[in-house]
Amino acid sequence: MTLLQSLKNFVRSKSIHVAYVDVGSCNGCDVEVLACLAPRYDIEQYGIFVHNNPREADVLLVIGAYTPGWEGKLEGLWEKIPDPKVAVAIGNCPISGCLFNRPHTLVDPPVSKHIPIAAQVPGCPPRPTEILSAILSVAPLVYRDYEVRK
């Protein structure tokens, strides 16, 4: 590995840009993601920045059980994110649909049917600590030696 590559790896692990998208949740997980932004968890010390703009995001947090209104739109949003990119499913809903996945409902979980999901954070809702540790553990793995692997 060249020096430049190791420098890139280091810098990328200290600069994680996050966008989140709610594809039809009950807002419980949104509140927990919001709690991550609060000073108690202090995400800037890990180098996590929330822009909520897919064009400059590295990590996409997907929240919710995928309602029909997101058909095609979530895929388009995923295409907008430049490589290397990674999607993390937050909460039970993108994994299994949780309480909403019952007969005669319109939701279409899991979200991994629609976009590739790299990590899942189960919980209804997950603790902000769990969300943070998931982002911190998955992001450096995805970005390590990105150009060399390609």
């Binding site: 039970n92 994994i95 299994s96 949780c98 309480l99 899942q120 189960p122 919980g123 209804c124």
Partner: peptide, 8 residues
Amino acid sequence: IHVGHCIR
């Protein structure tokens, strides 16, 4: 318990 379904 099935993690991913359980709401704790």
